[in-house]
Amino acid sequence: METVVEAIDLTHYYGKKLVYENLNFKIKKGSIFGLLGKNGTGKTTTINILNGYLRPKSGRCLMLGEDSYNLSPDTKSRVGFLIEGHIQYQFMNVVQIEKFYRRFYPRWKRAPYFELMSKMAISESQQISKMSCGQRSQVALGLILAQDPDLLILDDYSMGLDAGYRRLFLDYLDEYARSEGKTIFVTSHIIQDLEDFLDDCVIMGYNEVLVDMPLKEFRETFKRYDFEHDASPETPLKKSDVLLNYEWLKTRGVVYSFAERAAVEKALAESGAKPRNVREVPMSLEDAFIGVTGKY
């Protein structure tokens, strides 16, 4: 499978604050890749490195085979980039902005853009600055689709969008990706929408990668176990490879793990927690996300 984006040993600091160390991931051609994580885990930093707006302290990033720090105009024309907040030139209107971008992209396709615009209740002369956040997101999406890029990079596409617009946005992307074999890279902190959308995902914690696998595999292997206990309110538990994350409440506890129940029970017993009635509990993607990243 051809690799479209490859991050190799990315390490970055802001001043002395470590963002992450040795981040590695690959995005396969034709896949939809999600970079997930809570706020402040370095999603936008990674996007900036990917687009050459930031030089990592060490490591590098390849975009369509080119060092992301020095992207050629040709490569840029093959990458569609949605800036966090659906930012566009707010002093233009729907027609003007299409006229502007058209001149830069050899594969420009007007149809998808105007198709999307026609679904919105806005006049052609309305300036982008006077649009709602949802409308703006459609303009930004339409422009990226018209650009006909091989790779779409969407930085927090969900920001400021209500459920309807988020769904609309994803439907378009899904259709686009499936029908034309394009590659999509999304970051988001709203997880529930992505359940049936992502192929692969990386979940970032503070300073580390928590999960790097196909979404399907993550959903199948990452589990939640609930149990009761009589122990003191003080938790005897310690995080480990098996006990990835836990919650210790008065009479019951929750453990998140990639391990099977037997292994989890063993780990709990070894810690002296004396659990009763350990059972697997089904999770939504969002539950699983919180299970991996923790509530705080």
């Binding site: 800036i83 930012i87 707010q90």
Partner: peptide, 18 residues
Amino acid sequence: TPELSQSRLKLTLHLPAP
């Protein structure tokens, strides 16, 4: 000002040109 508010200059510099 419009280019720099909300990092709009990133759009401009992402245009496929030197």
